[in-house]
Design a protein around this nucleic acid. Structure first.
Length: 206
DNA sequence: CTTACGATTCCC
DNA sequence: GGAATCGTAAGG
Protein backbone atom coordinates (compact mmCIF):
# COMPACT_ATOMS: atom_id res chain seq x y z
CA UNK A 1 0.00 0.00 0.00
CA UNK A 2 1.09 3.55 -0.65
CA UNK A 3 2.42 5.64 2.17
CA UNK A 4 1.35 9.28 1.98
CA UNK A 5 4.34 11.63 2.12
CA UNK A 6 4.39 15.15 3.43
CA UNK A 7 5.83 16.26 0.09
CA UNK A 8 2.50 15.26 -1.46
CA UNK A 9 0.90 18.31 0.12
CA UNK A 10 1.58 21.98 -0.77
CA UNK A 11 3.40 24.02 1.87
CA UNK A 12 0.78 26.74 1.46
CA UNK A 13 -1.57 24.66 3.58
CA UNK A 14 0.29 25.57 6.77
CA UNK A 15 -1.61 28.04 8.96
CA UNK A 16 -0.06 31.38 9.96
CA UNK A 17 0.83 32.39 13.49
CA UNK A 18 -1.64 35.27 13.08
CA UNK A 19 -4.46 32.75 12.95
CA UNK A 20 -3.72 31.80 16.55
CA UNK A 21 -2.96 35.34 17.77
CA UNK A 22 -6.64 36.24 18.17
CA UNK A 23 -9.50 35.93 20.64
CA UNK A 24 -9.67 32.43 22.15
CA UNK A 25 -13.33 31.81 21.36
CA UNK A 26 -12.84 32.80 17.74
CA UNK A 27 -9.81 30.52 17.30
CA UNK A 28 -11.68 27.63 18.97
CA UNK A 29 -14.57 28.11 16.55
CA UNK A 30 -12.40 28.52 13.46
CA UNK A 31 -10.14 25.58 14.36
CA UNK A 32 -13.04 23.31 13.41
CA UNK A 33 -12.34 21.76 10.03
CA UNK A 34 -8.62 22.56 10.19
CA UNK A 35 -6.10 19.76 9.74
CA UNK A 36 -3.82 18.31 12.41
CA UNK A 37 -0.66 16.78 10.94
CA UNK A 38 1.78 14.54 12.81
CA UNK A 39 5.01 13.54 11.09
CA UNK A 40 6.29 10.30 12.62
CA UNK A 41 8.91 7.75 11.74
CA UNK A 42 6.04 5.37 11.04
CA UNK A 43 4.48 7.71 8.49
CA UNK A 44 2.26 10.75 8.14
CA UNK A 45 -0.82 11.01 10.35
CA UNK A 46 -3.52 13.43 9.21
CA UNK A 47 -6.88 14.24 10.81
CA UNK A 48 -9.63 16.86 10.74
CA UNK A 49 -10.48 18.78 13.91
CA UNK A 50 -14.18 18.30 14.72
CA UNK A 51 -14.46 19.35 18.39
CA UNK A 52 -12.75 22.09 20.44
CA UNK A 53 -13.12 23.93 23.73
CA UNK A 54 -11.99 27.44 24.67
CA UNK A 55 -10.11 28.12 27.94
CA UNK A 56 -10.03 31.84 28.44
CA UNK A 57 -7.03 32.55 30.66
CA UNK A 58 -6.44 33.64 34.24
CA UNK A 59 -10.02 34.88 34.73
CA UNK A 60 -11.46 31.49 33.69
CA UNK A 61 -11.85 29.32 36.83
CA UNK A 62 -11.64 26.12 34.77
CA UNK A 63 -8.44 27.10 32.95
CA UNK A 64 -5.01 25.96 34.09
CA UNK A 65 -3.96 29.58 33.67
CA UNK A 66 -6.15 30.42 36.68
CA UNK A 67 -3.18 29.13 38.76
CA UNK A 68 -1.03 31.77 37.11
CA UNK A 69 2.30 31.18 35.44
CA UNK A 70 3.77 27.87 36.64
CA UNK A 71 6.16 25.36 35.16
CA UNK A 72 3.22 23.56 33.60
CA UNK A 73 1.49 26.62 32.14
CA UNK A 74 4.63 28.47 31.07
CA UNK A 75 4.13 27.89 27.34
CA UNK A 76 0.66 29.48 27.56
CA UNK A 77 2.36 32.81 28.19
CA UNK A 78 4.59 32.52 25.14
CA UNK A 79 3.92 32.84 21.43
CA UNK A 80 0.61 31.73 19.92
CA UNK A 81 0.60 28.77 17.55
CA UNK A 82 2.53 26.47 19.88
CA UNK A 83 1.36 23.26 21.56
CA UNK A 84 0.34 23.12 25.22
CA UNK A 85 0.34 19.46 26.26
CA UNK A 86 -0.47 18.25 29.77
CA UNK A 87 -1.16 14.94 31.47
CA UNK A 88 -4.34 13.93 33.20
CA UNK A 89 -5.24 10.57 34.73
CA UNK A 90 -2.36 9.01 32.85
CA UNK A 91 -3.50 10.46 29.51
CA UNK A 92 -2.29 13.39 27.44
CA UNK A 93 -4.32 16.36 26.22
CA UNK A 94 -3.43 18.75 23.36
CA UNK A 95 -4.14 22.49 23.32
CA UNK A 96 -3.27 25.28 20.90
CA UNK A 97 -1.73 28.35 22.56
CA UNK A 98 -3.71 31.37 21.36
CA UNK A 99 -3.96 35.15 21.89
CA UNK A 100 -0.91 37.45 21.64
CA UNK A 101 2.18 36.62 23.74
CA UNK A 102 1.56 37.23 27.44
CA UNK A 103 -2.16 36.39 27.27
CA UNK A 104 -2.56 32.72 28.30
CA UNK A 105 -5.60 31.59 26.30
CA UNK A 106 -5.74 28.12 24.80
CA UNK A 107 -7.94 25.81 22.74
CA UNK A 108 -8.38 22.19 23.81
CA UNK A 109 -8.63 19.72 20.92
CA UNK A 110 -11.30 17.20 21.92
CA UNK A 111 -11.93 15.06 18.82
CA UNK A 112 -10.53 14.29 15.38
CA UNK A 113 -11.82 12.69 12.19
CA UNK A 114 -8.91 10.48 11.02
CA UNK A 115 -7.96 11.01 7.35
CA UNK A 116 -4.53 9.45 6.71
CA UNK A 117 -2.46 6.92 8.61
CA UNK A 118 -5.43 5.03 10.06
CA UNK A 119 -3.46 1.82 10.47
CA UNK A 120 -0.77 3.55 12.52
CA UNK A 121 -3.40 5.34 14.61
CA UNK A 122 -5.16 2.07 15.34
CA UNK A 123 -1.89 0.45 16.35
CA UNK A 124 -0.99 3.32 18.68
CA UNK A 125 -4.44 2.97 20.23
CA UNK A 126 -4.23 -0.81 20.51
CA UNK A 127 -7.31 -1.25 18.30
CA UNK A 128 -7.93 -3.54 15.33
CA UNK A 129 -9.12 -2.66 11.80
CA UNK A 130 -12.76 -2.78 12.83
CA UNK A 131 -12.35 0.45 14.81
CA UNK A 132 -13.02 3.74 13.05
CA UNK A 133 -15.26 6.01 15.10
CA UNK A 134 -13.50 5.37 18.41
CA UNK A 135 -9.92 6.08 17.30
CA UNK A 136 -9.72 9.77 18.17
CA UNK A 137 -13.10 10.84 19.63
CA UNK A 138 -11.77 12.19 22.92
CA UNK A 139 -8.90 14.43 24.07
CA UNK A 140 -6.84 11.57 25.52
CA UNK A 141 -7.66 9.16 22.73
CA UNK A 142 -6.60 11.53 19.97
CA UNK A 143 -3.23 12.17 21.59
CA UNK A 144 -2.58 8.44 21.80
CA UNK A 145 -3.70 7.95 18.19
CA UNK A 146 -1.46 10.78 16.93
CA UNK A 147 1.55 9.90 19.07
CA UNK A 148 1.32 13.13 21.09
CA UNK A 149 2.98 13.18 24.53
CA UNK A 150 5.03 15.59 26.66
CA UNK A 151 7.76 15.55 23.99
CA UNK A 152 5.36 17.73 21.97
CA UNK A 153 5.13 20.37 24.74
CA UNK A 154 5.90 23.77 23.21
CA UNK A 155 6.11 22.54 19.61
CA UNK A 156 5.72 25.30 17.02
CA UNK A 157 2.60 24.30 15.10
CA UNK A 158 3.18 26.71 12.22
CA UNK A 159 6.75 25.64 11.37
CA UNK A 160 7.11 23.29 8.36
CA UNK A 161 10.00 21.55 10.18
CA UNK A 162 7.88 20.60 13.22
CA UNK A 163 6.69 17.06 13.92
CA UNK A 164 3.24 18.47 14.74
CA UNK A 165 1.56 21.07 12.53
CA UNK A 166 -1.82 22.65 11.84
CA UNK A 167 -2.96 23.12 8.25
CA UNK A 168 -5.91 24.64 6.48
CA UNK A 169 -8.70 22.25 5.50
CA UNK A 170 -7.44 19.75 2.89
CA UNK A 171 -10.62 20.13 0.91
CA UNK A 172 -12.45 23.45 0.83
CA UNK A 173 -15.90 22.37 1.86
CA UNK A 174 -19.06 24.37 2.11
CA UNK A 175 -19.47 26.11 5.43
CA UNK A 176 -20.49 23.51 7.99
CA UNK A 177 -22.93 24.14 10.79
CA UNK A 178 -21.35 24.49 14.23
CA UNK A 179 -22.99 23.52 17.51
CA UNK A 180 -22.12 25.40 20.72
CA UNK A 181 -22.51 23.72 24.10
CA UNK A 182 -21.12 23.53 27.64
CA UNK A 183 -17.58 22.36 28.24
CA UNK A 184 -17.26 18.72 29.25
CA UNK A 185 -15.77 17.08 32.31
CA UNK A 186 -15.20 20.17 34.44
CA UNK A 187 -16.81 21.40 37.66
CA UNK A 188 -15.76 25.06 37.69
CA UNK A 189 -17.54 27.46 35.31
CA UNK A 190 -19.42 24.41 34.08
CA UNK A 191 -22.21 26.45 32.52
CA UNK A 192 -19.99 28.46 30.18
CA UNK A 193 -20.83 27.58 26.59
CA UNK A 194 -17.37 27.25 25.11
CA UNK A 195 -17.48 23.86 23.38
CA UNK A 196 -17.62 23.86 19.60
CA UNK A 197 -18.47 20.86 17.42
CA UNK A 198 -19.17 20.24 13.75
CA UNK A 199 -22.88 19.51 13.82
CA UNK A 200 -23.73 15.92 12.97
CA UNK A 201 -20.10 14.82 12.58
CA UNK A 202 -19.90 11.19 13.76
CA UNK A 203 -16.36 11.63 15.13
CA UNK A 204 -17.36 14.08 17.88
CA UNK A 205 -16.76 12.69 21.39
CA UNK A 206 -19.57 10.97 23.25
C1' DC B 1 7.48 15.48 51.98
C1' DT B 2 2.44 14.60 51.85
C1' DT B 3 -1.94 15.17 50.13
C1' DA B 4 -5.69 16.16 47.05
C1' DC B 5 -7.29 16.49 42.65
C1' DG B 6 -8.68 16.28 38.06
C1' DA B 7 -10.00 19.72 30.64
C1' DT B 8 -10.11 10.91 30.96
C1' DT B 9 -10.83 6.27 29.56
C1' DC B 10 -12.30 1.74 29.94
C1' DC B 11 -14.57 -2.00 32.09
C1' DC B 12 -18.22 -4.07 35.05
C1' DG C 1 -21.57 3.19 38.15
C1' DG C 2 -16.56 2.84 39.46
C1' DA C 3 -11.62 1.99 39.29
C1' DA C 4 -7.19 2.99 37.28
C1' DT C 5 -3.57 6.26 37.32
C1' DC C 6 0.09 9.98 37.95
C1' DG C 7 1.94 14.68 37.40
C1' DT C 8 0.96 19.09 39.24
C1' DA C 9 0.22 22.38 42.68
C1' DA C 10 -0.34 23.64 47.32
C1' DG C 11 0.35 23.27 52.09
C1' DG C 12 3.11 21.65 56.18
Amino acid sequence: MNIVQIEDYPKSLLLSQEFFSRETKLVALESLGKTLVRITEHGLLVAKIVETEAYLGESDPAAHASFGRTKRTNVLYGEPGHAYVYQLHGHHCLNFVVEPSGTPGCVLIRALEPLEGLDVMRRLRGKDESELINIANGPGKLCKAMGIDMAMYGTNLVDPASPLQVWKPLIEEQAQEVAISRRRGITKAADWELRFTLKGNPYVSK
